[in-house]
């Protein structure tokens, strides 16, 4: 949503701001100001700024989200092994504590930046912005952002990524899209991970998971994958490759506005309202 063309006015809120609506009245001596900004206006602004950075270098940014332990890091390790030859990959890792995941990635010779969020349950655009200062984007084709393992909070924060991938691991159960609709609605791809466990945990039905996803009006493709035996890996690689091609084609058709020169001096990002 933008702040200029009126598209912030939705079916849900238009009755509030129409003449006679609840927001129209005010007591005397007071000033009523209509704002209509997202509560995360500041975050969204920085996210857009991050996205421009990625775009300037034709870098695709993929945000991986899931519960803790759904296999995000294992997926990245397998992806590096499968695609690392032809594709320049960097990883931004988000966890409350430890460098463990970044170290796992670095063992494969890939640049990994660890963000330790302390007690924060999600990454936000400012954290990614800081991480980008330690990453020379001209050296990469793709940046994977591994969000904090959490099916709730990360869904609300735009980081500047181009696409979201939500992992749903087989041990979690196939009804997660119905239980966490906000998260799964944001996904451009849903990956059923640890699918090597399907024969053992046979109460997980991939078709049912897909039905729950359609119930929340998501048309995201669903890929079943095992980072262990690499079943489904081709579909994932094909999807990632497609995303990169689509992004490059998009940027060719819609070149970035020049004039947004960016030797990254630190400006105060406080939005002017």
């Amino acid at each position: 949503m933008c702040d200029t063309c009126g598209c912030n006015i939705t079916h849900g809120n238009e009755s509030l701001i129409k003449p006679g609506g609840k927001l129209e009245k005010t007591e005397s001596g007071r000033e009523a100001v209509t704002v209509l900004h997202s509560l995360l206006h500041e975050n969204d602004h920085t996210a857009q700024h991050n996205r421009e950075h990625f775009d300037q270098h034709n870098v695709l940014a993929i945000n991986l989200m899931s519960s803790p332990g759904a296999g995000k890091t294992a997926l990245l390790e397998a992806t590096i092994q499968q695609m690392g030859e032809g594709l320049r990959i960097a990883v931004i890792e988000g966890d409350l504590e430890t460098e463990n995941d970044a170290e796992r990635i670095r063992k494969h010779g890939v640049k990994a930046i660890q963000i330790a969020t302390g007690s924060a349950c999600h990454l936000d655009a400012h954290m990614i912005h800081d991480a980008l200062h330690n990453l020379d984007l001209s050296e990469y084709d793709i940046v994977f952002i591994e969000n904090v393992g959490n099916l709730v909070c990360p869904a609300s924060f735009d980081l500047g990524q181009h696409v979201n991938v939500a992992l749903l691991s087989v041990p979690e159960g196939d009804d997660k899209p119905a239980k966490y609709p906000v998260m799964f609605r944001t996904a451009d791809l849903v990956m059923i991970s640890k699918c090597d466990l399907l024969p053992i945990l046979d109460d997980f039905d991939p078709e049912r998971a897909k039905k729950y996803l359609r119930d929340i009006a998501s048309d995201a493709p669903v890929i079943a994958l095992s980072s262990k035996n690499l079943a489904g890996m081709n579909n994932w690689i094909e999807w990632v490759t497609q995303q990169i091609e689509q992004r490059i084609a998009y940027l060719e058709e819609n070149p970035l506005q020049t004039g947004h020169h960016h030797h990254h001096t630190h400006h105060d990002d406080n939005a002017v309202l």
Binding site: G12, L23, T26, V33
Partner: peptide, 10 residues
């Protein structure tokens, strides 16, 4: 929506 709709100021 998650929106700051309006403020009343003195």
């Amino acid at each position: 929506e998650m929106m700051l709709m309006s403020l009343e100021l003195e």
